[in-house]
Amino acid sequence: MIQRYRASAGIMLAPAVTLIGIFILLPMLLTVWLSFQDWSTQTSFSSASFIGLDNFREIFGPTSVGRDFTGALTNTAIYTALSVALILPLSVAFGLMVYQHDVAGGTALRTVLFSTYMVPMIAVALVWSKLYSPSEGPLNQMLGLIGVGPQPFLSSPRSALISIVFLNVWQQVGYFTVLAIAGLTQIPGSLYEAAKLDGANRFEQFRFITLPLMRRTLLFSAVIAIINAVQVFEPVALITQGGPVGSTNVLTYHIHRVGIERAQGGLGSAMAVMLMLSLIVVVCALFALANRKDQE
């Protein structure tokens, strides 16, 4: 009986497992294999030659290859950390505002917030590159009205990456607000009523009811926000080309430059493997932290 059950389960799972194997696991294993090869992206896999850990030594070495890779890894980490640090609190704040039943225009606000997520990145990048323009950009003109001098935004290595982060936050916050609202709907209203009877003010209700009960939603949002941020490519390719002085050169853009433009497939694969490992470590750490909190 159990054997028949196992056989039928295996048959039913086979199509999905096969598809996952072909389209997800195989490319990942291929990338790992290529990371140990010297291979030009434009030639067949058979032309790849095994070079052991040389690609990894190169990307962590002292030459320009190593400096560019570690710079891109650092930029990606900063971009991701800033994006998540801004998106999560903002999404909860907007979620709370929109979720209030007694606030007029809540639905309209929800639509406006989500609409930024639906705008294609090409349009967002074009508009924001003009907003940030140092000479004729509206942002600098508005700053001028309150007596603040022109800011370089994308033209300075100090502010270029942060400027790209703001663009990302503006586009993504609506989506995460919708997730936050979904989390808020899961909290029973009776808890707030009980808290009110006990004399809890709004802040205490938020601190001791809303936030703890939204932990799972926030964990999910954080994981998605991290994955989205790590994959940033379009604004860098369209606006800054990784500059100035490599200050916006994030890993996906750098891998594209190395692996496709320069056709250095082995080096590009080694960089992709490191990006994948970093992402796995961060997401696992996040889940471990959340599990520990749950156990406490």
Binding site: S133, P134, S155, L238, T240, Q241, P244
Partner: peptide
């Protein structure tokens, strides 16, 4: 001034704007 020197993917941008606007 390096902040006046940035180019974009279309090889235009502030460096060109500053020259054509007499800056």
């Amino acid at each position: 001034v390096p902040a006046m020197a940035t180019a974009d993917a279309n090889t235009t941008g502030p460096f060109l704007d500053n020259f054509v606007s007499g800056k």
